[in-house]
Amino acid sequence: MQKSDSDAKENTGLKVNLESTEEEKRILKQRAFQLAKTPKRDKEEKGKTIEVLSFQLSSEIYGIETSFIKEVLSLKEITPLPLTPPFLKGIMNLRGEIVSVIDIRTFFDLTDSGITDLNRVLYLYSEDMSFGILADKILEVTSIQLSSLHSQGLLTIKGIREEYLKGVSSSGMIILDAAKILADKRLIINEEL
């Protein structure tokens, strides 16, 4: 019995040793990391940029952060589903996966003004939601400084509900808040008969 006790001690002793070296390594790493950082954090925050994919829909130019875009698809064949809300345009087949496609204009209660040539779908995703949104044309991927976005003001003119907006860029691009759109429970269709 004693023997096994001492064994256990030895064993835990070994474990402590091992952990302390790992702990040391971790501390060293952390320090190195701290040192490597630029000292002024303030500047970093201010200059934070987001990567945005811009697209055209009706006569407006919108942008969505690329980190929420899984894929850009071309709109080939879409199957409409009866008895669903008008913002749901239908579903499409992406290599055997079913992707639902939404027209954000309808969802935002925008009157679709201007000629549209819907032929692209931005496949948005987050951890627990994914769907596609319609676009006329994909423009480009740009980096935008968060600080350069104006908030509000213009937005009311554009008629989009504030909650879905990140801001408007200096060039007039409407940056949508994809995280909020993806998390919006109103987009989930759950209809009992």
Partner: peptide, 27 residues
């Protein structure tokens, strides 16, 4: 049978979709 994605939690009168041989999606 293909289940819907999370956005389409439950639809009236439609339970799922299927993909035909030519790739068409059919409710």
């Amino acid at each position: 049978i293909k289940p819907f994605n999370k956005q389409l939690a439950r639809l009236k009168n439609i339970s799922a979709v299927t993909i035909l041989g030519d790739g068409k999606v059919v409710p």
